[in-house]
Amino acid sequence: MSLGDILFWIVGLMTALCAVMVVVTQHIVRCAIWLLFTLAGTAGLFFLLGLDFLGATQLFVYVGGTLVLVIFGVMLTATGPFIQLRAGAGEWAIAIIVGLLLYGLIAVSWMFADWSKLPEAALPDDPKQMYHTEQLGRGLLGDTSVQPVSALPGVPGKPRAAEKQTGKLQPPPSRQASAYLLPFEIVSVHLLVVLIGAAYLARAKRKRVVAASQ
């Protein structure tokens, strides 16, 4: 068992345990703290996979941004009885049974899935060699050399077979298609729009008070 494996088991099991604690805990603020550990553990898993950029984004956007927002929401609404809202024992029983069944379903369907249809995974052992941020950046710019095989049509990947047969001159690989750059920008603008919309929705309604007082 290598060091990476040991680290994976530690981080992975902690993440899973914290996720279970999110469900089990009744106190809503503690729930948010367990969620914090779950998200941080997920970031740890990303780092273990060698996907540094993803892990740092998870920490920056999710843990540093979204979760602070959620905790704000919790603290603004956690008054008196709402700190601990309990579900009945019968609901718990059903939820646990359904949850276990769902997990079993996912695990079984995974085991019977035919993975041979996917392209062969022949990846180097050391994640740092192949999976650093540079690759993601090149992928965003449409550099096909980082992803030799494409699973989806129209995204970076090997030239199609038809192109190969016609023998047409290939454009330089670094400028072939900026496949994910536009979606990436759209998602960023989307987030900005949503944040403004949310601020508008959640703002204090002063107009009604003014109207009532007049």
């Binding site: 540094d52 950029f53 984004t57 540093g64 941020t133 540079e134």
Partner: peptide, 25 residues
């Protein structure tokens, strides 16, 4: 040695605020 050292530093320093929120609450 990280390719995204700067981003990593900003990201982990963003999590420091949780200590303060928890202490406050």
């Amino acid at each position: 040695q990280m390719n995204i050292a700067l981003f990593f530093m900003l990201a982990v320093m963003a999590t420091e605020v949780f200590g303060v929120i928890l202490a406050g609450y």
